[in-house]
Amino acid sequence: MTVVGYLVNAISLGALYALIAVSVGLVFAVLRQINLAQGEVMAFGAYSLWLMRSLPIWLAIVLCFAICIAGSLVLQVAVFRPLRGASALATLIVTFGVSYGLEALWLVVFGPNGKPVSMLIRLNNTVIGGAIALRWITIVDIGAAALLLGGLYALLFRSSLGLRMRAVAEDFSTARIVGVRIERVVTVAFVLCGASAAVVAVLETVQTPLVTTTLGLSLIVVALVGVVLGGLDHLGRATAGGFIVGFVNSLLGSILPEQQLVFVTSLTFLFVVIVLVVRPAGLLAPRGVGVERV
Protein backbone atom coordinates (compact mmCIF):
# COMPACT_ATOMS: atom_id res chain seq x y z
CA MET A 1 0.00 0.00 0.00
CA THR A 2 1.09 3.53 -0.60
CA VAL A 3 1.00 6.56 1.64
CA VAL A 4 -2.29 7.55 0.05
CA GLY A 5 -3.73 4.18 0.93
CA TYR A 6 -2.53 4.49 4.54
CA LEU A 7 -4.02 7.96 4.79
CA VAL A 8 -7.38 6.97 3.38
CA ASN A 9 -7.58 4.02 5.76
CA ALA A 10 -6.60 6.24 8.65
CA ILE A 11 -9.29 8.74 7.74
CA SER A 12 -11.79 5.95 7.61
CA LEU A 13 -10.94 4.62 11.07
CA GLY A 14 -10.81 8.17 12.40
CA ALA A 15 -14.30 8.75 11.03
CA LEU A 16 -15.56 5.67 12.83
CA TYR A 17 -14.14 6.83 16.15
CA ALA A 18 -15.44 10.34 15.54
CA LEU A 19 -18.93 8.84 15.35
CA ILE A 20 -18.48 7.15 18.71
CA ALA A 21 -16.86 10.22 20.22
CA VAL A 22 -19.66 12.49 19.11
CA SER A 23 -22.22 10.38 20.97
CA VAL A 24 -20.17 10.55 24.15
CA GLY A 25 -19.72 14.27 23.63
CA LEU A 26 -23.40 14.84 22.99
CA VAL A 27 -24.55 13.18 26.20
CA PHE A 28 -21.88 15.02 28.12
CA ALA A 29 -22.93 18.33 26.60
CA VAL A 30 -26.59 17.91 27.43
CA LEU A 31 -26.41 16.11 30.78
CA ARG A 32 -22.78 16.30 31.94
CA GLN A 33 -22.82 12.52 32.09
CA ILE A 34 -20.33 10.05 30.66
CA ASN A 35 -21.96 7.50 28.42
CA LEU A 36 -19.62 4.54 28.58
CA ALA A 37 -22.57 2.25 27.90
CA GLN A 38 -22.71 3.55 24.33
CA GLY A 39 -20.23 0.81 23.47
CA GLU A 40 -22.64 -1.89 24.55
CA VAL A 41 -25.41 -0.35 22.45
CA MET A 42 -23.08 -0.79 19.49
CA ALA A 43 -22.33 -4.36 20.52
CA PHE A 44 -26.05 -5.01 20.88
CA GLY A 45 -26.58 -3.63 17.39
CA ALA A 46 -23.84 -5.82 16.00
CA TYR A 47 -25.27 -8.93 17.65
CA SER A 48 -28.71 -7.99 16.35
CA LEU A 49 -27.26 -8.05 12.85
CA TRP A 50 -26.18 -11.62 13.50
CA LEU A 51 -29.64 -12.48 14.79
CA MET A 52 -31.18 -11.01 11.65
CA ARG A 53 -28.70 -12.64 9.27
CA SER A 54 -31.45 -14.35 7.30
CA LEU A 55 -33.40 -11.15 6.68
CA PRO A 56 -32.88 -8.98 3.62
CA ILE A 57 -29.93 -6.68 4.21
CA TRP A 58 -31.88 -3.43 4.01
CA LEU A 59 -34.44 -4.68 6.52
CA ALA A 60 -31.75 -5.88 8.89
CA ILE A 61 -30.07 -2.49 8.78
CA VAL A 62 -33.31 -0.62 9.36
CA LEU A 63 -34.14 -2.89 12.30
CA CYS A 64 -30.62 -2.48 13.62
CA PHE A 65 -31.22 1.27 13.79
CA ALA A 66 -34.52 0.72 15.59
CA ILE A 67 -32.91 -1.68 18.04
CA CYS A 68 -29.97 0.59 18.81
CA ILE A 69 -32.21 3.60 19.31
CA ALA A 70 -34.50 1.60 21.57
CA GLY A 71 -31.52 0.31 23.54
CA SER A 72 -30.13 3.78 23.91
CA LEU A 73 -33.47 5.08 25.19
CA VAL A 74 -33.82 2.22 27.66
CA LEU A 75 -30.41 3.08 29.06
CA GLN A 76 -31.37 6.73 29.34
CA VAL A 77 -34.47 5.90 31.37
CA ALA A 78 -32.95 3.12 33.46
CA VAL A 79 -29.48 4.51 34.10
CA PHE A 80 -29.00 8.11 33.10
CA ARG A 81 -32.23 9.59 34.38
CA PRO A 82 -31.83 8.25 37.92
CA LEU A 83 -28.31 9.65 37.89
CA ARG A 84 -29.33 13.21 37.00
CA GLY A 85 -27.48 15.60 39.20
CA ALA A 86 -24.84 13.08 40.13
CA SER A 87 -21.26 13.90 39.27
CA ALA A 88 -19.89 13.06 35.85
CA LEU A 89 -17.50 10.67 37.53
CA ALA A 90 -20.36 8.81 39.18
CA THR A 91 -21.90 8.29 35.77
CA LEU A 92 -18.57 7.06 34.45
CA ILE A 93 -18.33 4.51 37.24
CA VAL A 94 -21.92 3.38 36.95
CA THR A 95 -21.88 3.08 33.18
CA PHE A 96 -18.60 1.21 33.47
CA GLY A 97 -20.42 -1.26 35.71
CA VAL A 98 -23.35 -1.41 33.30
CA SER A 99 -21.02 -2.03 30.35
CA TYR A 100 -19.15 -4.70 32.21
CA GLY A 101 -22.40 -6.40 33.15
CA LEU A 102 -23.75 -6.20 29.62
CA GLU A 103 -20.54 -7.65 28.27
CA ALA A 104 -21.08 -10.61 30.59
CA LEU A 105 -24.67 -10.78 29.38
CA TRP A 106 -23.47 -11.11 25.78
CA LEU A 107 -21.22 -13.91 26.99
CA VAL A 108 -24.15 -15.73 28.54
CA VAL A 109 -26.52 -15.18 25.63
CA PHE A 110 -24.21 -15.37 22.62
CA GLY A 111 -21.38 -17.46 23.98
CA PRO A 112 -17.64 -16.86 24.02
CA ASN A 113 -16.86 -17.73 20.42
CA GLY A 114 -18.06 -14.70 18.53
CA LYS A 115 -20.76 -14.55 15.92
CA PRO A 116 -20.02 -14.13 12.22
CA VAL A 117 -21.82 -11.27 10.51
CA SER A 118 -21.08 -11.37 6.83
CA MET A 119 -24.08 -9.68 5.30
CA LEU A 120 -22.20 -6.74 3.85
CA ILE A 121 -18.92 -8.47 3.34
CA ARG A 122 -18.92 -7.41 -0.31
CA LEU A 123 -18.11 -3.89 0.81
CA ASN A 124 -14.61 -5.14 1.53
CA ASN A 125 -14.01 -5.49 -2.19
CA THR A 126 -11.63 -2.99 -3.64
CA VAL A 127 -12.74 -0.05 -5.69
CA ILE A 128 -9.27 0.77 -6.89
CA GLY A 129 -6.83 -2.06 -6.74
CA GLY A 130 -3.10 -1.94 -6.90
CA ALA A 131 -0.99 0.40 -4.86
CA ILE A 132 -3.76 2.46 -3.33
CA ALA A 133 -6.01 -0.49 -2.52
CA LEU A 134 -9.14 1.47 -1.79
CA ARG A 135 -12.02 -0.61 -0.51
CA TRP A 136 -15.71 0.21 -0.77
CA ILE A 137 -16.09 0.13 2.99
CA THR A 138 -13.57 2.91 3.35
CA ILE A 139 -15.66 5.13 1.17
CA VAL A 140 -18.86 4.13 2.94
CA ASP A 141 -17.18 4.75 6.31
CA ILE A 142 -16.10 8.22 5.43
CA GLY A 143 -19.34 9.00 3.66
CA ALA A 144 -21.54 7.81 6.53
CA ALA A 145 -19.53 9.71 9.10
CA ALA A 146 -19.54 12.87 7.02
CA LEU A 147 -23.27 12.56 6.50
CA LEU A 148 -24.03 11.96 10.15
CA LEU A 149 -21.71 14.60 11.53
CA GLY A 150 -22.84 17.09 8.91
CA GLY A 151 -26.45 16.33 9.73
CA LEU A 152 -25.77 16.78 13.42
CA TYR A 153 -24.07 20.08 12.76
CA ALA A 154 -27.05 21.26 10.73
CA LEU A 155 -29.41 20.09 13.44
CA LEU A 156 -27.50 21.90 16.17
CA PHE A 157 -26.88 25.17 14.40
CA ARG A 158 -29.66 25.47 11.86
CA SER A 159 -32.76 24.25 13.65
CA SER A 160 -34.89 25.27 16.56
CA LEU A 161 -34.40 21.88 18.16
CA GLY A 162 -30.66 22.37 17.91
CA LEU A 163 -30.94 25.78 19.51
CA ARG A 164 -32.73 24.18 22.43
CA MET A 165 -30.10 21.47 22.66
CA ARG A 166 -27.36 24.04 22.74
CA ALA A 167 -29.24 25.99 25.40
CA VAL A 168 -29.45 22.89 27.59
CA ALA A 169 -25.79 22.18 27.00
CA GLU A 170 -24.79 25.66 28.01
CA ASP A 171 -27.00 26.21 31.02
CA PHE A 172 -29.27 23.39 32.07
CA SER A 173 -31.40 25.22 34.63
CA THR A 174 -31.81 28.45 32.69
CA ALA A 175 -32.87 26.47 29.65
CA ARG A 176 -35.67 25.01 31.74
CA ILE A 177 -36.64 28.42 33.04
CA VAL A 178 -37.10 29.77 29.53
CA GLY A 179 -39.31 26.78 28.80
CA VAL A 180 -37.11 24.21 27.09
CA ARG A 181 -38.73 20.82 27.60
CA ILE A 182 -35.69 19.09 28.90
CA GLU A 183 -36.93 15.54 28.52
CA ARG A 184 -37.47 16.00 24.81
CA VAL A 185 -33.98 17.33 24.32
CA VAL A 186 -32.50 14.46 26.30
CA THR A 187 -34.57 11.98 24.33
CA VAL A 188 -33.36 13.43 21.06
CA ALA A 189 -29.77 13.24 22.27
CA PHE A 190 -30.13 9.55 23.09
CA VAL A 191 -31.92 8.84 19.83
CA LEU A 192 -28.95 10.37 18.03
CA CYS A 193 -26.62 8.22 20.13
CA GLY A 194 -28.59 5.15 19.17
CA ALA A 195 -28.47 6.05 15.49
CA SER A 196 -24.74 6.61 15.60
CA ALA A 197 -24.33 3.30 17.44
CA ALA A 198 -26.22 1.56 14.65
CA VAL A 199 -24.01 3.13 12.01
CA VAL A 200 -20.91 2.05 13.92
CA ALA A 201 -22.34 -1.43 14.42
CA VAL A 202 -22.95 -1.87 10.69
CA LEU A 203 -19.59 -0.44 9.62
CA GLU A 204 -17.64 -2.30 12.28
CA THR A 205 -19.18 -5.66 11.37
CA VAL A 206 -18.20 -5.11 7.76
CA GLN A 207 -14.58 -4.53 8.68
CA THR A 208 -14.43 -7.16 11.41
CA PRO A 209 -17.12 -9.68 10.53
CA LEU A 210 -16.88 -11.50 13.85
CA VAL A 211 -18.86 -9.98 16.73
CA THR A 212 -17.30 -10.71 20.13
CA THR A 213 -18.32 -9.71 23.62
CA THR A 214 -15.53 -7.17 24.00
CA LEU A 215 -16.53 -5.19 20.92
CA GLY A 216 -18.25 -2.45 22.92
CA LEU A 217 -15.73 -1.69 25.63
CA SER A 218 -12.76 -1.91 23.31
CA LEU A 219 -14.24 0.69 20.96
CA ILE A 220 -15.65 3.00 23.60
CA VAL A 221 -12.46 3.15 25.64
CA VAL A 222 -10.45 4.32 22.65
CA ALA A 223 -13.17 6.81 21.73
CA LEU A 224 -13.25 8.10 25.31
CA VAL A 225 -9.52 8.59 25.13
CA GLY A 226 -10.08 10.70 22.05
CA VAL A 227 -12.84 12.68 23.72
CA VAL A 228 -10.63 13.45 26.69
CA LEU A 229 -7.70 14.39 24.48
CA GLY A 230 -9.85 16.65 22.35
CA GLY A 231 -11.76 18.24 25.18
CA LEU A 232 -14.82 16.84 26.85
CA ASP A 233 -16.41 20.23 27.30
CA HIS A 234 -16.75 20.97 23.64
CA LEU A 235 -18.62 18.76 21.21
CA GLY A 236 -16.57 19.74 18.18
CA ARG A 237 -13.26 19.20 19.94
CA ALA A 238 -14.43 15.92 21.45
CA THR A 239 -15.37 14.65 18.01
CA ALA A 240 -12.12 15.86 16.51
CA GLY A 241 -10.28 14.11 19.36
CA GLY A 242 -12.04 10.86 18.51
CA PHE A 243 -11.09 11.27 14.89
CA ILE A 244 -7.44 11.98 15.68
CA VAL A 245 -7.09 8.96 17.94
CA GLY A 246 -8.55 6.68 15.28
CA PHE A 247 -6.46 8.29 12.59
CA VAL A 248 -3.18 8.04 14.49
CA ASN A 249 -3.89 4.50 15.62
CA SER A 250 -4.54 3.37 12.08
CA LEU A 251 -1.49 5.14 10.76
CA LEU A 252 0.80 3.72 13.43
CA GLY A 253 -0.72 0.34 12.79
CA SER A 254 0.34 0.48 9.16
CA ILE A 255 3.78 1.96 9.77
CA LEU A 256 5.17 0.39 12.92
CA PRO A 257 6.61 -3.12 13.02
CA GLU A 258 4.71 -5.69 15.05
CA GLN A 259 6.92 -5.77 18.14
CA GLN A 260 6.66 -2.03 18.64
CA LEU A 261 3.01 -1.87 17.71
CA VAL A 262 1.96 -3.64 20.90
CA PHE A 263 3.15 -0.70 22.96
CA VAL A 264 1.03 1.82 21.07
CA THR A 265 -1.68 1.31 23.68
CA SER A 266 0.73 2.28 26.42
CA LEU A 267 1.88 5.33 24.55
CA THR A 268 -1.71 6.39 23.89
CA PHE A 269 -2.66 6.11 27.54
CA LEU A 270 0.54 7.75 28.66
CA PHE A 271 -0.37 10.60 26.39
CA VAL A 272 -3.83 10.73 28.01
CA VAL A 273 -2.28 10.98 31.47
CA ILE A 274 0.05 13.75 30.38
CA VAL A 275 -2.78 15.70 28.78
CA LEU A 276 -4.96 15.31 31.87
CA VAL A 277 -2.18 16.64 34.04
CA VAL A 278 -0.91 19.39 31.78
CA ARG A 279 -3.93 20.48 29.75
CA PRO A 280 -7.01 19.16 31.56
CA ALA A 281 -9.38 21.03 29.26
CA GLY A 282 -8.09 19.00 26.34
CA LEU A 283 -5.34 19.36 23.79
CA LEU A 284 -7.55 21.13 21.31
CA ALA A 285 -8.95 23.63 23.77
CA PRO A 286 -7.63 27.15 23.50
CA ARG A 287 -5.11 28.09 26.16
CA GLY A 288 -6.50 29.44 29.38
CA VAL A 289 -9.65 27.34 29.40
CA GLY A 290 -10.04 26.29 32.98
CA VAL A 291 -11.39 23.01 34.20
CA GLU A 292 -12.41 21.95 37.66
CA ARG A 293 -9.41 20.71 39.52
CA VAL A 294 -9.33 20.10 43.21
Binding site: R164, R166, A167, E170, A175
Partner: peptide, 15 residues
Protein backbone atom coordinates in the same frame (compact mmCIF):
# COMPACT_ATOMS: atom_id res chain seq x y z
CA UNK B 1 -26.62 31.90 27.01
CA UNK B 2 -23.26 33.52 26.68
CA UNK B 3 -21.99 31.66 23.64
CA UNK B 4 -25.11 32.35 21.63
CA UNK B 5 -26.03 35.49 19.80
CA UNK B 6 -28.50 37.94 21.23
CA UNK B 7 -30.90 36.89 18.49
CA UNK B 8 -30.67 33.25 19.52
CA UNK B 9 -31.23 34.17 23.15
CA UNK B 10 -34.37 36.04 22.21
CA UNK B 11 -35.56 33.17 20.08
CA UNK B 12 -35.31 30.89 23.10
CA UNK B 13 -37.46 33.38 24.96
CA UNK B 14 -40.23 32.80 22.45
CA UNK B 15 -40.36 29.08 23.31
Amino acid sequence: FASMTVKENLELGRL
